[in-house]
């Protein structure tokens, strides 16, 4: 697990579902094939209604220079991030687009599991409504172990919720690495 994650924030609202994160028409790519994995980055967040894309203003494209990888590194969102389908393509799309962690009030269960067990992104939870306090483009720095999020642009900081029981899985890098570590699978 990295000790700090730094980069620009991309801010979204509540109930960002998996169809918005990666629309169903792109699920024909197979994430197990490296060249196809990249394609999920290209279409990440492509069904977010424009007015809700890049809050508070909206209408901010997620990709700026590169069409596969976004300049943004951290997603800040409201409640129930990742609701909807079980498609692992959703955290994969964010990972392929260069997102390293999401900070949301809480997650839909399957999205959360997929993020942790696949080792794609770190899903942090916050008791503050940060999607109304952080602006798209703000420079953030996250101290992963301490769970402290700094907004370098505004000089604010927040204590996020502890990762708790999933911390060892995130730390190991996913469910397979974790199962090997605890002796459930042969190393």
């Amino acid at each position: 697990m990295q000790s700090t994650i730094s980069g620009k924030a991309y801010v979204l609202g509540d109930n960002v579902d998996t169809d918005q994160i990666i629309p169903a028409q792109y699920l024909t790519y197979n994430p197990a094939v490296a060249e196809e994995y990249k394609m999920f980055g290209k279409y990440a967040l492509s069904s977010v209604p424009p007015a809700q894309a890049g809050l508070p203003k909206g209408h901010v494209p997620f990709h700026t220079r590169d069409e596969f990888v976004s300049d943004y590194k951290i997603i800040v969102a409201g409640k129930n991030f990742g609701c909807g389908s079980s498609r692992e393509h959703a955290p994969i799309a964010l990972d392929a687009a260069g997102i390293q962690c999401v900070v949301a009030e809480f997650y839909a269960r399957i999205f959360f599991r997929n993020s942790v067990n696949g080792g794609y992104i770190i899903p942090f939870e916050t008791s503050d409504r940060l999607c109304e306090q952080i602006c798209t483009g703000d420079e953030l720095k996250l101290d992963v172990a301490a769970g402290v999020l700094h907004n370098l642009t505004t000089k604010e900081k927040w204590q996020l919720k502890p990762l708790g029981e999933v911390a060892p899985i995130i730390d190991a890098g996913g469910i397979f690495a974790y199962a090997k570590k605890v002796g459930m699978l042969k190393a």
Partner: peptide, 18 residues
């Protein structure tokens, strides 16, 4: 219940899931 590819790959190999 519904699960993702990684969890399902794990079940395919072990028959178990946390």
């Amino acid at each position: 219940t519904g699960i993702g590819n990684t969890d399902a790959g794990f079940v395919l190999g072990t028959g178990k899931l946390w």
